[in-house]
Write a protein that binds this DNA or RNA. Sequence first.
DNA 1: CTATATATGCTCAGAAGGAGCATAAGTCGT
DNA 2: ACGACTTATGCTCCTTCTGAGCATATATAG
Lengths: 358, 358
Amino acid sequence: MDTKPTDNEATALRPENPGGIDTAGRAGTPVQITLNAVLAALEDNEPKVLCVTRGDSPLALPYGPFDPREHRTFELGLRDWVTRQTQLSLGYVEQLYTFGDRGREGLGRSLDTPLEHLVSVGYLALAAAAAPVDDADARWRSWYRFFPWEDWRSGKPALLTDAILPALGQWVKSADGQTREQRRARVETAFGQQNLHWEEERILERFELMYEVGLVGERRASRTAIEKSAPNEDGLAARTGLPMVSDHRRILATAIARLRGKLKYRPVIFQMMGPAFTLLDLQRSVEAIVGFALHKQNFRRSVEATGLLVRTGTLSDQTGGRPAALFRVDRDALQNRADMGLVIPRLVHKPTGRRPTE
Amino acid sequence: MDTKPTDNEATALRPENPGGIDTAGRAGTPVQITLNAVLAALEDNEPKVLCVTRGDSPLALPYGPFDPREHRTFELGLRDWVTRQTQLSLGYVEQLYTFGDRGREGLGRSLDTPLEHLVSVGYLALAAAAAPVDDADARWRSWYRFFPWEDWRSGKPALLTDAILPALGQWVKSADGQTREQRRARVETAFGQQNLHWEEERILERFELMYEVGLVGERRASRTAIEKSAPNEDGLAARTGLPMVSDHRRILATAIARLRGKLKYRPVIFQMMGPAFTLLDLQRSVEAIVGFALHKQNFRRSVEATGLLVRTGTLSDQTGGRPAALFRVDRDALQNRADMGLVIPRLVHKPTGRRPTE
DNA sequence: CTATATATGCTCAGAAGGAGCATAAGTCGT
DNA sequence: ACGACTTATGCTCCTTCTGAGCATATATAG
């Protein structure tokens, strides 16, 4: 270390001439900022997301403008209008992604008509319960209504086997040479049929692929001639979940992907649990989010190993069988170990049937 | 599934009245968008980042305005001005975070004077080599110049033991009761001294903590009385790395954190390697990024197990010892398995000395 | 009292990963 | 040519993690 920090005490003020490599003569055009919220909560072992409608347009994620005069940060602005509109207390808020495409209406594809300069910042917010909302236009909906092929909790969805995968297969076969190989690889990575297996976190990749192939309801703003000849116009798009306004479904997919991933290395799941719960409650919640069934005993083993839970001492008699011990989160332990998430003991074999040893 | 998607074919157009929960009467104020780039590359086993200077203000990350009239997406805009200013070909570009704080100059703290409405989108970009840049004000610098305490490649930095940790300890002791316990927990999570261990990915958390305590050069815009009484004004800030303009050092920390994490589950490291390299080259590169030494044999074992590398057949005689086999990336394998990163066989015991069995 | 739930404890085996030993094949100085 | 070093590379050992399944406990429904 030979150079000491500059003498002039490093004032953290922006220099007169903002020091980009080249800002000469180019002024950024002012744009509008919109905040999009994916508000997620669990209800009866279903993962739900708050949606709004306006007239007969498709569903939308709640969103509002960001006014920098009113709020110091995005997050404060978001919390403000969410709590003003709903009675929800947002425990956990996380920025997802900022979408700045001019052709954003078309999921990032080019568009023929010029669009307004719109930038939207997506946020994921977790609520402890899907509390009723005071807005007739707002409603909680299971997120698998938008992504039915993502719910493997009772096995591989028939929609996937019967419709989506064949359609993707056709799309692959409709090209040749290198393009074909690339398409095959993309489908394989996203949907993992042969060597790879289904990775729940790839939900965005899957959605974008399906969008590109034309398998979902949202219309692409423009298509090239080749893309127009895609063979999947048999109405499959009508069965692949509810469409949403603009690219909101993509934002939702981003949020789910983030949450599915984060579960594994941060204890976020407890933001969505009530004050006391059984281990099976917790398991069902995790299953709801990741979208597949877990191995019960192993789940319990690893959850108890975290030391994040303590027994309340009481039992739950809602089981229909032997009563289950009720647990609550150890707030202290949670604070001290904000790292660490849950092990997800994925069931590799059969989801339910216990196969005899032989 | 009872409700079929709406009949009107889900046009992906934004509805006339943008359907936020409540947009009535509130118009978002237009803001300026700035793109910040963390341009990273490796040079002689040092991780480098491109910095610019303007006059005698502190170093800055290259940044430029985003003009939606000119570029369709942020990423295109970024690539455009980076390639115009440098000869670098950006292989990999990834959005980091969008900073919208009004008090951004003060790292997100409140500020007394009103500021312009500025939003900046941070990007991480990886280049294959730290190629020379055609701008006298731009220069590659090791990122450990900004974060000297993050480089554990030759053991725990003395700066940490001698200065930073004691100062943090004082900060903890200067509070009492619950505050004290909270501070202790925060320091422990970020710097992991007792039960936890150093987690390289927590670089942002560490920097923000140090900022809050006043251990880094960047000045906080405003402080509360209590914070002003922090006991760490002994000039330590002059030794904790080079300061940067505004919150650029925070953006850099975000980028490093992202890269350190991503290594483990995406093969991004190959974006920063030349066409052919030895396994030790690869190891040194990974070590440069994560900031600590790896176990050589185990690193090699797991890298070879990925199947992402193929031997070129030639040997490197640059070793000073037995020649090493040269490898190159198997592009096909890389494409087919965009998932999977490298196992990081962290050395838990002594970095160098082999302790006799006894 | 019996069938049938669910809860909970425990064992077993394979895979992954942390460490270190041993050997191979170069360079450099004498 | 030889000995001292240096780096490369192969292999073993052992512990921990984790996928699976068996066995037992304690309820409820008839």
